[in-house]
Write a protein that binds this DNA or RNA. Sequence first.
RNA 1: GGACGCGUAGCUCAACUGGCAGAGCAUUCGACUCUUAAUCGACAGGUUGUAGGUUCGAUUCCUACCGCGUCCA
Length: 714
Amino acid sequence: MAASRPLTERLAVKAWRAPGTRRRIFSAKRPNDGPQSRQLYDGFYTGTTRQERGRSLFASEFEEEQYRLRQEKLQRIQQLGVEAGLKPLEATYPNSFRVTHEVPAILREYTEVSGEALDADRVEAAVAGRVMAHRRQGKAGFAVLQANGARLQIYVRKDDVGERAFELYKLLDLGDHIGVSGYLFRTRTGELTLHVRELTFLAKAMLALPDKFHGLTDIELRYRQRYVDLFMDDGEEIESTGVSASEPIPSDLSTGPERSGVQEPASLPVAVTTPGQNPEAIAASTQSLKRLPAREVFLKRAQVLKALRTFFDSRGYIEVETPMMQPVAGGAAAKPFTTHHNSMDMDLFLRIAPELYLKRLVVGGMDRVYEINRNFRNEGISTQHNPEFTMLEFYQAYANYHDLMDLTEELVTFVANEVNGTTLIDFPLPKGPRAGEMVQIDLGKWERLSMKEAIVKFWPEGFGHPPAEEDFQSEQAFSSFLLNALRELKSQYPQLETPTAEVSGVDIERHRYRRSLLTIFNGHRMLLTADRTEQVREVAKIMNWPEPTDKVLAEAEPVGKAIAGVFEAVAEQHLIQPTIIYDFPLAVSPLSKVKPDEPDWVERFEFYIGGFEVGNAFSELNDPEDQRRRFEAQLGERERGDDEAHQMDADYVRALAYGLPPTGGEGIGIDRLTMLLTGSRSIRDVILFPLLRPAKKPVLEKTDETAAKEPEQA
RNA sequence: GGACGCGUAGCUCAACUGGCAGAGCAUUCGACUCUUAAUCGACAGGUUGUAGGUUCGAUUCCUACCGCGUCCA
């Protein structure tokens, strides 16, 4: 059958590119149409309605042409099938195919069996899969079938399958699904191959597969068309950051002797293949320097979930499901998504955390509960943030945060061993001054630091002395301390207020780091209470800033917020090996129980791995009066403009009034944990369908009517 | 929200200082009964993300916008 003339000749109309797309599309809604082009355009799909034209979209004429050609092939496949006695639909889209072996099972079972053994004792098999390679060689050919993530070569010879089946074989395209039966053998080069005797067509790929060697490398396309990514992606070498990996961070950023990450040998290929390791271990470590194929990542994700359930189920926890739509979005500091229930005429929020419901269950006598489910936060998107993400939360009555620290270490170690068979991971740091650097992390080795200790330990050089215990004691003390730090920095580093884009002759990374610290130490965060007017003025003077306005002066923050902010600025990025940071300021912890002897601090910890927060836990506040007061304080924060401040939840206070036993509770970000266990640099790599802006280019959606008509027009 | 980078054929990538937009894979046609990123021969495939500007001339320079990425906030 002759290829038809290019569509352009027939249609005399040019495709245009929709704004913001890389592809040319046909659409009835073409902007800026002149009368002439509109006329031509209207003639494009004769006999179809305007609406249908609007939906009849291909990436290009080329793709449309190809789609049509494959429809013609499908017709011929149908003919072949009908000649062989099949009904038309059985020939093109049969309902099933009975396999005797799964491809991965065949590979497992016969990988060690020699060609001679296979010839002597023939193994018959029927398998099915997607055609991923198609090599014709005159009256024979090899193809590669992929199923369940495994690939098996097949050998098709005209003499063996007959004229009709070989015609069918010639009509196959990459991406088609077929079933084959025959016997196993080894080729001259030793590859396990199925010698085909019968060939059954199962389904057609109407669109072209990506480059067979490179696959999809366009990150956007991998996320948007995950269905392609999943069967095409076979991983890739992680770009070598070997040079920066072995370089320590600039010396004036590393203060103490405790930069454990720096002193670790970088996990270069050379480093992992130390003598004495068995071959599998070497292979495994070498492999881990490759990005895992998408499919593998999501298989591991499933194993993570399974391991978590095993862990909790075996400890007497009950898995529960609590509302995702909540009248009050509580349990965390975050902006919620809003939705509306029509028949009840009621606004609802997608939950930002299950916390308050789970604690209600503990009130109800479910002493150990856990939930693994989605949370939704209406915030920015980054390599560690997706608007919907999966959270594990668990609560245990009669436990406190010390118990949970032990449990956390046990849990992470257990999951790592279940999923990877080891607690060692090679992980590309996703952010901070060492972003992109490969580090080796041992998920079985944990360090514990109080927040105060962490601030002292990671206090940067050039900012004066780190805070002393008494500096944390009062607002006044911490405020003066920060002020001195600022003075010190300014005296040591006069370029401080120069914008990063304008500095010259200094290390940009170092400069950026100082600037980012500055944002923590500066203006509004220095305003620890409303009565800081003089200090703010002094800061402004040091920094050559304009005289603070009343608005700035009014934006006072509690000292606890400033301490937590300083912790994030100086310490978080250094917490690469698993680290528990415990004892948080009360001001940032509206649901935690205070420490009995330090009323401004609460029994709470977060744990950090790879430079970011993975989990958060505390001894739960169970005094309803105290809880009510804290909600009210949060309302005050909210009125001051903090729309992440916690909302009042009167029913939760009521639940507490029935009596919550002393309880420890914890939340763990499953996506982030999965990132660590799969070596993924972005949260989008561990979420099947991460949120993206809708593509302007619609994915294929062609009406049957137009599709059927066109060949006839040719 | 800011800074930087990217956007060229279905896919993966070229195109020097502004000078005729090119290759591989895939597709189409042909050859080949042990190939494996098969090979060999031929054809076809493009409004260089969009809109404007500078220029004799723009994929290249400038502006705005769209999308994505990275870092920062």
